[in-house]
């Protein structure tokens, strides 16, 4: 196995992500753009995948709701240090968050799946059957 291969993949991925920075795909419909958690939205075939980095949350501190085409992600992040400690450096942030996004496509609300692993939240949004593009055969 070549040592550099997986990392070249990462560089390509980094460049691909850069070129979609604040793309117009969501239009102006994302409330709290720039809010926590920052979101990356991907397509996977016909479906949509929303990914967010939110380290150190507990599953019960995360609330994901879907209504129509709108997804809301809310919760709170806390950090505990314990008693009697002396703090040398503090860079991790804490607080409440809530943001919603309006997808420009229809999704099948019954088949949505969410996964939280290694501090990364991924929400899988299958596109509604009636919204999928159809190819038209020429008779």
């Amino acid at each position: 196995m070549l040592y550099s291969d997986p990392f070249e993949t990462l560089l390509q991925l980094q460049q691909a992500l850069d070129s979609f920075r604040s793309s117009s795909w969501l239009g102006t419909s994302t409330s709290g753009a720039g809010g926590f958690p920052p979101l990356n939205v991907f397509s996977k075939g016909d479906d949509i995948v929303v990914v967010a980095e939110a380290p150190g949350l507990k599953k019960d501190q995360l609330d994901i709701q879907v209504k129509g085409r709108t997804i809301q992600i809310a919760g709170a992040k806390t950090v505990t240090y314990g008693d009697g400690v002396s703090l040398h450096r503090r860079e991790r942030t804490i607080g409440r968050f809530s943001r919603s996004l309006n997808l420009p496509v229809e999704i099948d609300a019954d088949k949505i799946k969410a996964e939280y692993r290694d501090g990364v939240l991924a929400i899988f949004l299958p596109r509604a059957e009636q919204d999928k593009p159809r190819s038209i055969k020429i008779a």
Partner: peptide, 10 residues
């Protein structure tokens, strides 16, 4: 996965 809209680098 193909990016559509991104807010943070990885």
């Amino acid at each position: 996965l193909e990016p559509l809209y991104t807010e943070y680098p990885i």
